[in-house]
Amino acid sequence: MAINTRLFGRTGPSVTRVGLGGEGVLRTHGRGREAAGVIEKAASSGISYFDSAKAYAGSQGYYGSFYRSHQEDRSTIFQTSKSAAREYHEARADLRETLEFMGLNSLDLWQIHDLRTRGELEEIESPDGA
């Protein structure tokens, strides 16, 4: 059974409508075997949208373990992550750390996490903002 896909944004790429988030077992530490099973099952089932965040405990490391042993799958997965940092230098440091944990050179989508107030929006839009 194929999972439906759609263009991400107006120009693509095409990603599955169902994604794997960074919550549940992926938001733990020390449960690598369980997390690997979840990620591997998602990938083998055809899910192509994988989400993570620095705030999701060990999720970035779990994804990194997956990519280190499944490098061929990286080209079929749209990998996202997030930073809750509001200042440029902090967000940039988070991105470097994320790429290191995941063993990747790039992400497909990098997002500002948990934006809630107009003040936070103004902060990230400022000259030194994320």
Rank of each mutant, 00 (worst) to 15 (best):
Q79A: 10
G22L: 10
Q71I: 13
K41A: 15
G58P: 06
F50I: 03
A93T: 12
P13W: 08
A84F: 01
T117N: 05
A85M: 00
T16K: 01
V38W: 11
F8N: 11
I47R: 09
I47W: 02
L99T: 02
Y62G: 03
E72H: 13
T16L: 10
R6T: 11
E120D: 14
R68L: 11
E125W: 12
T28E: 05
G21R: 12
D128F: 09
P127T: 06
R74H: 05
Y63L: 15
H113Q: 13
S126A: 04
T28A: 07
G12N: 05
S59W: 07
A2G: 04
I47Y: 14
R92F: 11
N4W: 04
S75L: 03
G32R: 14
I124Q: 00
S69T: 15
S59L: 08
P127W: 00
L26E: 01
W110A: 05
G58E: 06
H89K: 14
S69D: 12
T5F: 06
R68W: 03
H113I: 02
R118G: 03
A85L: 00
G64I: 12
H70F: 07
K54E: 10
P13T: 10
A130M: 03
D108Y: 01
V18Q: 11
S52I: 04
D108G: 12
R68H: 12
E90W: 02
A91D: 00
S106F: 14
G64P: 10
Y49H: 15
F101M: 10
E123D: 02
N105E: 15
I124R: 00
Y62H: 04
S83F: 05
E40A: 14
G22T: 03
D128T: 12
L7C: 03
G46M: 13
G21N: 09
F50R: 04
V38E: 13
Q60W: 00
S106L: 06
H70T: 04
A85K: 00
G19V: 12
V25M: 11
L109M: 13
R31N: 12
S69R: 14
Y88I: 00
G32N: 15
H89P: 01
G61N: 05
G46D: 12
A130K: 00
S14N: 08
D114N: 15
E72Q: 14
L95G: 02
S126E: 01
D51G: 08
Y56E: 04
P13C: 09
L99R: 00
E90S: 13
L20P: 05
G61M: 00
T16G: 04
S126R: 10
M102V: 06
Y56R: 06
D73C: 12
R6I: 03
R17Y: 02
A93Q: 10
D114M: 11
A55M: 11
H70Y: 09
Q60T: 05
G30I: 01
G61K: 04
G129T: 01
R116P: 01
L7Y: 06
W110H: 04
S126M: 07
W110P: 01
E40Y: 02
L121N: 03
R6H: 11
T11F: 15
F66I: 06
E34V: 10
E72P: 03
S81A: 14
T11Y: 15
S44C: 02
S69G: 08
A53D: 03
E23M: 11
L115P: 03
T80E: 05
